[in-house]
Amino acid sequence: MQSIDPTGIFDLPNTSLIFWEVITFAILLALLYYFVYPPIKNQIRQRQQSIEQAIDEAEKTRKEARKLLQEYRQQIQEAREEAREIREEARQQGQAQRERAKKEAREEADRIIKRAQEEIQRERESALREVRQEVAGMVMQASEQIIGRSLDRDEHERLISRSLDELEAEVAGAGSGR
């Protein structure tokens, strides 16, 4: 078929171009639809998935980190609290210890003093008793020698004891009267 335009700028109909265009374009479309678009589509979808996954993971990690931080802060707070308690307790214990030690020392001292007083008392009493017996013995001996006969020992001792008591009472009365 002859073209209606000899210059070729209005090239209608160019049967060979039309024929080959239809064939070429059909083949091109088939190739693109089968070999090009599916892998690109897959690749884009895959990347999208991996990006979404990465975002999710990052979100999760951030949440975890925040939780951990919270936990640590709480732990530090608790540790401080505990340290304060321990210190307080130690202080109180120390105080109690000191009090107890003081009290014990005082008690001990009291006990020692008391014992010493008792000892003194005992010593004095025994000394007194000895002196008394001595005096009684001496008085009896002297009396025997003077009288020349032995006195009834028990009677005698009773007499001496009474006079000694009287003496003691006198001494005590004089002592307290002063």
Binding site: M1, T15, S16, L17, F19, W20, E21, T24
Partner: peptide, 14 residues
């Protein structure tokens, strides 16, 4: 009778 010669235009189409 239809001309389907491969000419310059068709080559560039290919």
């Amino acid at each position: 009778s239809i001309d389907i010669s491969i000419n310059k235009a068709v080559w560039f189409l290919f």
